[in-house]
């Protein structure tokens, strides 16, 4: 068995967004994963935040209007 340190809910919640943003180093990430495997409450919270973040990601993609696409095509042609 590995020697992953146990962390409590308070610490898990403090790290939550860095975990979801993939900013934790290997050991801290593993501690977080272990906690989420054993704590239903934190797991539910993490899943909620993960889905919300996924939905936000979709907000950054918006079909460019056709006339604007044409403007960019014309711009590229001039280079």
């Amino acid at each position: 068995m590995s020697d992953i340190k146990e962390i409590g809910c308070e610490e898990a919640l403090r790290r939550l967004f860095e975990y979801l943003d993939r900013e934790l180093d290997g050991a801290r990430h593993a501690e977080m994963e272990q906690h989420l495997h054993t704590c239903r409450a934190c797991y539910s919270r993490a899943e909620f935040e993960r889905h919300l973040k996924g939905k936000l990601g979709a907000v950054g993609k918006e079909p460019a209007p056709p006339e604007f696409e044409l403007r960019i095509k014309n711009l590229l042609r001039r280079f």
């Binding site: 907000v59 950054g60 993609k61 918006e62 079909p63 460019a64 604007f68 696409e69 960019i72 590229l76």
Partner: peptide
């Protein structure tokens, strides 16, 4: 640029 246009536009918006 063509492949990223929707994402560029969405972010700019």
């Amino acid at each position: 640029i063509t492949g990223l246009l929707d994402r560029l536009y969405g972010t700019a918006l």
